[in-house]
Design a protein around this nucleic acid. Structure first.
Lengths: 106, 106
DNA sequence: ATCCTAGGTTACCAACGGAAACCACCGGAA
DNA sequence: TTCCGGTGGTTTCCGTTGGTAACCTAGGAT
């Protein structure tokens, strides 16, 4: 169960959808490191678990909008806490990592 | 960067180490679904990133104790928030999943 | 007719993770 | 002595996952 929530792409997608609905290619461009395949798979799973809703909009080239559901917004709270913690502590992690890598290889 | 924190085993290990130090096999038994290989790898990475400390205790069969560092305890806060959210909302996720799976295959 | 864009799906392949075997150390039992 | 058990790992093999890139569908513009 934690495996779905602990999935790195899911966390990122939920974070990106926090401010408001986004289209498929917006997400893809915004997240940056994700492959199209994984983005579709991640969105399918998030939809299945009730975190996001998928809406097909009949524009000229059909566009698809993804949006957090109520449950998704609710999940966003702890997820953003984690994301903000990470941002606030990257420097400390990098420092620890550098110290670890630089220590004598016993 | 989120990839290390978003890793499901890391989240679990940090949660288990929350209350206090644990030995290798205690962790393995407690977590339950983890392979020995992944537990060692996860602990190495957590140690490298400064979240846990590794202490070899010279008992009769040498035992190894893992403990959260100050940074690890700090990370524990948002991680536990996420874990508790999950526990509190498993039912809703399961319901959404059942509804998704049961819906007409269009 | 052909191309382009949006959103996917598929084929192929490299890398990751799990299971289980093996290893090193040490003390005690046979 | 030799064997066994219990620590904390490492290695080998193999199945699954994820990335890359090509292809697909449908509508509009050129």
């Amino acid at each position: 169960m934690l495996s779905r929530i602990g999935d790195k792409w899911s966390v990122l997608v939920v974070s990106y959808l926090g401010p408001g609905p986004m289209r498929f290619n917006e997400l893809k461009k915004g997240i940056g490191g994700i492959s199209q395949k994984m983005l579709t798979a991640t969105l399918r799973n998030l939809e299945r678990d009730g975190f996001v809703s998928r809406t097909v909009i009949p524009t000229r080239p059909v566009s698809v909008e993804y949006e957090l559901t109520q449950l998704g917004h609710c999940l966003l709270v702890p997820v953003q806490a984690l994301a903000q913690w990470t941002i606030a502590n990257i420097a400390r992690i990098d420092a620890a990592r550098a110290a670890y890598d630089a220590r004598p290889p016993e």
